[in-house]
């Protein structure tokens, strides 16, 4: 199975990746070969089989609804590319 150029661009857009025109062909071919390999699944008989979401069928552990984290904003923001007064800076969103 092979992907069309506009399909590659649509997937890239959903994944928030930009794909240069020169790379579209290679992505289409390689993603196509991966999807072809994955397609072997279609032959499996899975009628009535419950999909497996967790390897230990474990329930979610709950804890009391109390704050446990201390304020470490300054530590965390040290890794941010751009901050100002504790706020993360991004390109202008509202004109």
């Amino acid at each position: 199975m092979s992907l069309k150029a506009d399909e590659v661009l649509a997937i890239a857009r959903l994944a928030r990746l930009s794909v240069a025109d020169a790379e579209v062909g290679e992505h289409a071919a390689k993603l196509g070969s991966i999807l072809e390999m994955i397609d072997q699944l279609q032959a499996a008989d899975t009628a009535g089989i419950e999909p497996m979401a967790h390897p230990l069928s474990q329930g979610q552990r709950l804890r009391d609804d109390v704050a446990t984290e201390t304020d470490r904003r300054d530590d965390y923001q040290r890794n941010a590319p751009a901050v100002h007064d504790g706020l993360y800076l991004v390109p202008r969103v509202i004109e």
């Binding site: 994955i38 279609q42 499996a44 899975t46 089989i49 419950e50 497996m52």
Partner: peptide
């Protein structure tokens, strides 16, 4: 077709 099917086959493998 893909994700749900894969999780079902995963159950078969387990």
């Amino acid at each position: 077709a893909y994700y749900l099917k894969a999780q079902q086959v995963r159950a078969l493998i387990a």
